[in-house]
Design a protein around this nucleic acid. Sequence first.
DNA 1: CTAAAACTTGACACCGATGTCAGGGTCAAG
DNA 2: CTTGACCCTGACATCGGTGTCAAGTTTTAG
Lengths: 119, 119
Amino acid sequence: MRIGDLSAATGASARSLRYYEEQGLLSSERGAGGQRQYPESAVERVGLIRTLLAAGLSTGAIADVLPCVADETIRTPWLAGRLTEELRRIEAQMADLRRTHEILAGLVDDYTIGSGHYN
Amino acid sequence: MRIGDLSAATGASARSLRYYEEQGLLSSERGAGGQRQYPESAVERVGLIRTLLAAGLSTGAIADVLPCVADETIRTPWLAGRLTEELRRIEAQMADLRRTHEILAGLVDDYTIGSGHYN
DNA sequence: CTAAAACTTGACACCGATGTCAGGGTCAAG
DNA sequence: CTTGACCCTGACATCGGTGTCAAGTTTTAG
């Protein structure tokens, strides 16, 4: 498939797909005219990339982690450390979100109760 | 207290504190020489601002929500909508984080098991 | 009084993923 | 062949919170 097809299949813009390749997250064959050619499996890979991006991982972090996902035999101690580092970041971020969620949810509850009973 | 004290007390840089004021999140009295003067309560307020920022709320969103936190009588339907909007954003973000957390945690487990039993 | 420390405003720089535009190739259908 | 859709590279713009530097004012300690 060409870049437009992959874009349509994943929701990522062609710009983003080229960027992922530039950052080493995605590879492509080039046809005669120099146009990118992707295997079907690229759809899944882009999905994974987007998932990781959505969780706040940088392209650099993803570049570190992706080989590990692709080839399970690549398991260096360094990589394990890298993974747990990102896990800690995610856990911290979730804690931040929970705190704010509680605050805002509390306000909404007050509002609902207040408007229902007192306003 | 002056800006340096507030900075020390909250961990926010003086630059950030001025920025928060510029964005309408924080107010200050000005002394004779034009220097900012904060009440003790500012410490807590800055803490709240930072919590909300850490959860990914923009200064604009915080500006919308803060009056509501400060004065509980301010409860317009619009504000309730604004709050739930942010709540949904936060929930979506937590879902993204959970997905990635599972992926990465799975890899770490594989690594641990693998190194323990097979490597 | 003086020097250092703290403050003021204003401006510019950064990061990182993405948008967008320009100028030029490629490909498929008529 | 031609035309329109698609693709290529390269470059510059964007956003938002923060860092940082500059030049000038205020406060505080000696």
